[in-house]
Nucleic acid binder design. Structure first.
Lengths: 174, 174
DNA sequence: AGCAGATGCTAGCACTGCTAGACATCCGAG
DNA sequence: CTCGGATGTCTAGCAGTGCTAGCATCTGCT
């Protein structure tokens, strides 16, 4: 898993072939298949790992901020920062097919927890009469859009900070 | 191009192999390479085609609505509707690597025009002192996040409409 | 009639994820 | 002290991928 993640961050997921991976861990290919059902499951494992890490990063960022507005801003920045610093892991979580279930009762705990980390901070700024879960989904979608479009070169990176401020200003009810 | 799009919509982009494609158009593989430099360019061509179509769909939706609020809501619905109805084309535009340039001066006209279609309607609700382009980028990112996360099964589809309403309520200044 | 360019094909390369079957090695029962 | 089975690993190979080199054929101009 660690090697897959490392390889993906260095040369992109395209470079993470079973042969490359096997060579790096100094085993032959079939050994991989006695630990994972296939490449998809390797991606899924990296994704779960990343989800745990992201949840921790989000909580650390919000804990260090005082007041609802500062917390939400810190949350958004931490999210986008995580996506920018760990593009391969972010891809494994949300872009690639890791065979993971979302928004079901059988969603793996790390994923649920990452969503919970968002919810904890966002619930207090959802506004009256707005379901916190729904608000979190919307806020998350906006962050996800910013993260993916920016990294894919679809949005110029210069004004990233302005977009975050606008996002918090408009979405959060303070 | 039409065959590639058809095949992608029916069985996903994974099924769009040069062999499959060649067989469907009743030619051999190498013929594809005398029209396109590679598979990437085929995806790019489908993407450009889709961008033109999307721009038209967005303009048609907003033209039929009266008042800023109705226009923005119609725009958002039309965008998400397009993504839901043409998942393969949407993927070609924003998810896959079609070798297209974004946010540069050499961005292909259809892509610029699709962004312009968003800008036309969103500029009037950006709010005072907010750059219309920046606002459009943020709104677009939110829509993109909703579209991709919903289709990937990351967001439950039941409350899609509520999310759109919340998005318009919060982001647009009316 | 003969040539040139366009147009298409067959065959093949290097790569992908994945698997069957053989081979070693070790551990515990008799 | 032997030996059967479990365990772990490997080599070799399959079917499929994007892409290309090189050869055939057909068309239209001179």
């Amino acid at each position: 898993m660690a090697t897959a993640r490392e390889l993906a961050e260095q040369h992109g997921w395209d470079a993470v072939t079973t042969r490359q991976l096997a060579e790096r861990i100094e085993y032959s290919q079939p050994v991989l298949y006695s630990h994972f059902r296939g490449k998809r499951e390797i991606i899924g494992a990296v994704a779960l790992d990343g989800a745990t890490e992201m949840a921790a990063a989000l909580r650390a960022a919000t804990a260090a901020a005082a007041g609802p507005r500062a917390r939400v801003t810190a949350l958004a920045r931490a999210y986008l920062d995580f996506a920018a610093r760990n593009p391969a892991v972010y891809d494994a979580m949300f872009q690639l097919d890791g065979g993971l279930a979302f928004a079901h009762e059988d969603t793996p705990p790390p994923l649920k927890d990452a969503f919970a980390a968002l919810l904890e901070t966002l619930a207090e700024v959802a506004g009256d009469g707005v379901h916190p879960g729904l608000f979190t989904e919307l806020f998350w979608a906006a962050l996800h859009g910013l993260a993916t479009l920016t990294r894919a070169g679809r949005l110029p990176p210069e004004y990233a900070e302005h977009r975050v401020e606008l996002l918090v200003d408009r979405l959060a009810v303070l």
